[in-house]
């Protein structure tokens, strides 16, 4: 059963900002289909009245005081930056609120 077409793969790779070559795209589509078909296994289970688990730890209300600690400072903050300009991170031009 084919679940995803190359078009869906294009949508997904656009969402996660990954470019694929045509060959990669083809292989990727096949592999994702194979994996997703396997995942259909879960549909065998009736989970209607089952609460989802998002955390396994028995914790709630983990909070910290609103107390200041020293920041890193811009020099250290920028030390790993691929490109910078003065004290700023530098990126290709952003146009009209889109990327």
């Amino acid at each position: 059963m084919t679940k995803i077409t190359p078009d869906v793969v294009d949508h997904v790779t656009k969402l996660c900002r990954i470019h694929l070559t045509n060959e990669e795209r083809k292989k990727f589509t096949e592999q994702l289909n194979q994996i997703l078909t396997y995942m259909d296994k879960l549909n065998e289970l009736n989970t209607e009245n089952v609460e989802p688990t998002s955390h396994v730890v028995p914790l709630e209300n983990v909070l910290r005081k609103d107390a200041l600690s020293p920041s890193l400072g811009s020099e250290k903050a920028l030390a790993n930056a691929p490109d910078k300009h003065g004290e700023y991170f530098k990126v290709p031009r952003i146009i009209n609120g889109t990327e």
Partner: peptide, 16 residues
């Protein structure tokens, strides 16, 4: 625990 002040030097009020 970084501060929230406005107008600090760029990227000076940051941490990992």
């Amino acid at each position: 625990a970084c501060g929230t002040k406005f107008g600090e030097a760029p990227n000076s009020q940051t941490c990992p």
